[in-house]
Write a protein that binds this DNA or RNA. Structure first.
Lengths: 173, 173, 173, 173
DNA sequence: TATGAATGAGCCTTCATTCAT
DNA sequence: CATGAATGAAGGCTCATTCAT
């Protein structure tokens, strides 16, 4: 991956995340990345190819997180780690997550696997913890995580720590 | 409001909600509404004007909900009504809410007042219920509501009822 | 001619004169005249029909001037009357003349007869006055009149009187 | 400046001059220049940008003329050069001047500086020649020049030379 | 590898004109 | 006579994509 390729990816991620995929012109990406318009297509074939490259690139980080999760054997610890995730994601991942969530609202969903993965992990946890309705609990917690992600990405509340504290306490972990 | 005007609004709402505002062509709206493209602009002036008309139209329903809320004097009842809202919104409002949430991810946010309003209502409730950190509780619950809305709008889980049951029980209302 | 018809004519003349025929929308004419868009077409058939109606209406005034001219039997007096014309046209005719001159620059010239008429009148005068090259003198004076019309219509110089004085003296009339 | 850019400029000048700026479609310019419509906007940004480019390009020639004027120290010689100008402009400049004069009749005048410049030059000349009312003389001569330009551009009289002769003799230069 | 001129389809919008009322 | 909703062609402009260099 050359330096220009990387610059294209970075700038495209930022713009896609801020203005949306459809509303971002490739010409603008080229200009802000300081490369020619043609180069984007030489490297990524099409605008959609560029998007896919971004998503693959970002997915690695997600997988890293997922595998880190499985180091916790204690279900309480795993639950806590999951609860904390939205509150501590790396700032450099900010644009990536904005993009992911913004894409969720477009018809042709790009990959819903993330939610499914986490849902299954949660299901296992709640079963281990012998919650009465582990399925509903898991589904609800996926929703809560999406909601806190939204808060962190869109509103960036000052009292994020306190929110986490309340959440942690509710789940007793 | 003539019949054609209404048809434009309905079709536009549907398409904006499904594909996103930027990705929807006015020509497509016109075609699917069975009117000439020019008519859209005669009635709504611009694509953005059309969006605003949709939002105003939908906002009435939101206000209806809000004022219905204030009929509950008991904080527990109000809290419960708020918790239930995402699980029982009218099916005809589906597209409207999808549009609202999809727009939240675009930079020039169209109106964030809804979240603020609900946040304040929640703050009051948690204060009345003497929660230790009402502010964090309110902020967290706004997030939870956003998350459940996302679930209902994007995944439409079969066990929605159970999710609500779990939620209601967590808040003891 | 109803009152609304007259209002359409007046407003159209004003707008055509100020912004040009092509750049003026019939919808704007309708709005500023306080009539419906359809009415223009009921009365004048098309945008071009409206223009023709305006020109015919204005031409009457021109003919009035021309026939007034022929009351002067003395060539000097006639010449003087012609020289004075651009400096004393009725203010209500301002828009009409602007329109005439602005149309001269569009390919499909609407009527060049005015220049020809005046050219012939001048030719006769200069022949009667035994100028050495009456033809060139006539052609030049037509140009001078066009030039002074331009000055009066576009720049409206404060010293118009003085200009006329200089001109009258040059021709010794 | 590439060859296609130049072709766009040439064709646009011709069409703007013949049919007027507002009445000329960019699609027509593209077609007659043998380029895609998009190219016009890539090079000139907008239709108005194209017009400005044409005007700047043509202005150079005007400035050349102006500076050539100032080589004449004798006021009579300068006056004569000014009088001759409309009768001898380069045929390749025909469209440029038609455009300039046609634009004068549109409200938002593009640059009136030319008339002002020449007016000042004439004022100086008539003062040096001790004319009784130099201001009126200058203003009148500006008008006469505009009038002869109109004649040359719109009617192209066969006896142009004779007109100039008469004019030169009237000013005794 | 990299450029940027060039393309053409499609976008939002305007406008002259028609027609049911 | 008069309205104004409705049309559809065209207008200026943008954008993803291609290609000669």
């Amino acid at each position: 991956m050359t330096e220009k390729q990387e610059r294209i990816l970075t700038v495209a991620l930022e713009l896609f995340a801020q203005q949306g995929y459809a509303a971002t012109a490739t010409s603008r990406i080229a200009r802000e990345a300081g490369v020619s318009e043609g180069l984007i297509f030489r490297h990524f074939e099409s605008k959609e190819g560029l998007l896919k490259a971004i998503l693959e690139y970002g997915n690695k980080e997600v997988n890293t997180f997922n595998s880190r999760l499985s180091t916790y054997t204690d279900p309480r610890a795993r639950l806590r780690a999951i609860l904390e995730a939205p509150f501590y994601f790396e700032p450099q991942q900010y644009h990536f997550w904005r993009l992911i969530y913004s894409l969720k609202w477009q018809m042709e969903t790009y990959d819903n696997s993330m939610s499914t993965t986490i849902k299954e992990a949660l299901l296992e946890i709640f079963e281990q913890l012998a919650y009465p309705d582990p399925n509903a609990e898991a589904e609800l917690l996926v929703a809560i995580i999406d909601g806190t992600m939204m808060a962190m990405l869109l509103r960036q509340p000052e009292n994020a720590r306190d929110m986490l504290a309340v959440l942690v306490q509710k789940y007793g972990v």
